Simulated scan of single mutants.
Amino acid sequence: MEIIATAESMNQAEALIDAGADRLYAGGHPFGLRLPRPLGLEEIESIVRLAHSRGKAVTVACNALMHNKQIDQFAAYLTQLAEMKVDALAVGDPGAILMLKEQALPIPYIYDAGTLVTSAEQIAFWIGQGASGAVAARELTLKELIMMQQKLDRPIEVLVYGPTCIHQSGRPLLTNYFHYTSGDRASRLDDQVLFLRDPKNAGSQYPIIEDTDGTHIFSTEDLTLMGQLKIMHENGLDTWKLDGVLLRGDAFVSIVALFDEARRAIEAGAFVPESFINRLKKLQPEHRPLGTGFYMKNPEDVH
Rank of each mutant, 00 (worst) to 15 (best):
L223S: 07
L41S: 08
M10L: 15
R54D: 09
R23M: 12
D198M: 06
G183S: 07
R188H: 14
T79L: 11
P199F: 13
V302T: 05
F276E: 02
A88I: 01
Q150M: 10
L229K: 07
K297N: 07
Y295A: 10
I166R: 02
S53W: 07
R263V: 08
C62K: 03
G55D: 11
A13Q: 07
L105C: 13
P285V: 03
R248P: 00
K69C: 06
E234V: 01
G269F: 10
P106A: 15
P30K: 02
F125S: 07
N201P: 00
L24I: 02
G203R: 11
I146C: 12
M147K: 07
I255A: 13
K281I: 08
F294V: 02
M232N: 05
E144G: 04
G269M: 08
G236C: 13
V245W: 00
I127C: 08
H216D: 02
N278V: 01
M296H: 04
G244Y: 01
L142D: 14
L98M: 13
G227P: 04
T6V: 03
L194T: 09
A7I: 00
I97R: 00
E43L: 02
N235F: 05
A76C: 13
L194R: 08
M232G: 05
Q129E: 15
Y177V: 01
R279P: 08
V58S: 00
S9E: 11
T181K: 12
V48M: 04
A136K: 05
I217Y: 02
N298I: 02
W240M: 04
P163I: 00
Q73H: 09
D22R: 05
K56R: 15
Q192D: 10
G162Q: 02
E221M: 11
A134C: 14
T181E: 15
L280C: 12
T118W: 07
M1W: 03
L50M: 09
A5W: 05
V245H: 03
D260H: 14
V193E: 02
A257C: 07
L35R: 00
L41E: 12
I110D: 00
F259L: 13
D153Y: 10
R197N: 10
R263W: 02
K282L: 14
G269W: 09
T59H: 12
L16K: 01
L159C: 05
R197D: 06
D153W: 11
T212I: 06
F276N: 01
L258T: 01
Y25H: 08
S254D: 15
D184S: 13
K56T: 14
Q70C: 03
S275H: 14
G32H: 06
G20L: 06
G55Y: 08
P289Y: 01
L145R: 04
A88H: 03
